[in-house]
Design a protein around this nucleic acid. Structure first.
Lengths: 231, 231
DNA sequence: AGATACGCGACTGTTCAACAATCCCACAAG
DNA sequence: CTTGTGGGATTGTTGAACAGTCGCGTATCT
């Protein structure tokens, strides 16, 4: 009986159970992303080791995972701390987004209904969340929307890259004091972009997405600059 | 006296000594890239630990670094082995290259003489190496050429991504038995692309580069398929 | 004979404790 | 105000230990 017959190969990821370090990284990642550990916080090895009941080596492994995701910063003999993104980082992140997301849209195959459906589902989810006033949910739906756009390229490496980029951006989004004002205008634009894609207007979707990203970048940079002015 | 005055901040990287794990990773990376450890080779912890005189924990950290770079594959209770790239991997790598390199070219600022110079230098270096028949040198010059193209975007994250992509591709290039036949045709094309860029013909450079990448991909996939036919 | 079950050796996953190296901070001296 | 000089805390690295798992050869059964 081969994998092709049983179709079990896909469930393999559930089988190789994750290592302790990965689970620790999951815990820390959530804390960081949700703002429990604000940027700049130094993560003491001894403290966390005692609280989680794991060994230092395991924790250090988790640190390495998160450092590679650029959520932590690691300095020799100074330990790990939550990354503090600069304005240059924000600009760079949007450069990556423009390159990757637009490339994915530009090579869209109009026959890829599965891919387009995933995007539309994320858009609809965001709209529902907005109606019920759950702006945090709108935020995660928006991330899923952009992840789905990149998924159009069907490239595992670009998917990975995008996952990391969006995780980093979540560090940034905390500076937006009013999530509603930030996210609301993008709901209609998301809807319009997906409409163009379904109509086969790839070039139109491309330009709209590029403008969308430029606007979001400008807004974030402004919020960042005003925050830096009065720390 | 501030950093802005002394300009020493750039040399900081020389100061923070790299950790032992990173140096070990450097050693192994070179061996892997140069083909000393062919794809599929299992790297025994005990053997390497004894030969390099380091501890298992440190080596395992180095393994982790290389696994993140996708040069090693790690399986539970089976250890680390040199990645064996599949045809799907090659296709994916070229998808990434197309997205990133073309994006960098498309947003080229014709006034960025420093960036264009770096590219032209790599092209000239490759041409010189070709004249003296050093085809291995032609290969590394070619990699520097593409790295320089991505550098046009001035994005640290895209630079990083590209570095990893090119390292992976070196695993693949070993299947090309005749490096001359592989690299020679690209010399003229590299020269032509940089000429267009200098002339401000961004769109032309973009299309040429896209065709270049498509051709290289096709050639590699063919070589890969014929190798798989007679292992 | 062929398939299955068992057991052994080798290797990896994880943790712990110890020591060396480095950083941070307070304090003293010029 | 700047420049040494401690000591305490934290990190980097190592070696050893033990449990879990895999690969493979041997034995057993039908």
């Amino acid at each position: 009986m081969s994998d092709a017959v049983t179709g079990l190969a896909a469930d393999r990821a559930l089988l190789d159970r994750t290592s302790t370090a990965e689970r620790v990284a999951d815990i820390l990642r959530t804390r960081i992303i949700e703002g429990y550990f604000p940027p700049g916080t130094r993560l003491s090895e001894l403290t966390i080791v005692k609280e989680l009941g794991i060994s230092r080596n395991t924790l250090r492994e988790a640190f390495r995972l998160l450092t590679h995701e650029r959520l932590l910063m690691h300095e020799m003999h100074r330990g790990a701390s939550v990354r503090k993104l600069t304005i240059e980082d924000v600009v760079d992140l949007y450069r990556v987004r423009k390159a990757v997301e637009c490339a994915a849209v530009r090579q869209l195959d109009p026959a890829d209904h599965a891919g387009i459906d995933r995007i539309e589902q994320a858009v609809a989810d965001g709209e529902r969340a907005a109606e019920s006033g759950d702006w945090s949910h709108v935020g995660t739906a928006n991330l899923r929307y952009h992840q789905a756009i990149v998924a159009l390229a069907e490239s595992p490496r670009l998917d990975d890259l995008m996952r990391g980029v969006l995780a980093e951006l979540r560090l940034v989004f905390h500076v937006m004091a009013d999530p509603r004002r930030f996210y609301e205008p993008y709901l209609a634009r998301n809807r319009e972009i997906i409409t163009r894609m379904k109509a086969g207007d790839v070039a139109g979707a491309d330009t709209m997405l590029a403008e969308y990203l430029a606007d979001a970048e400008r807004q974030l940079v402004e919020a960042y600059a005003s925050k830096a002015a009065q720390p």
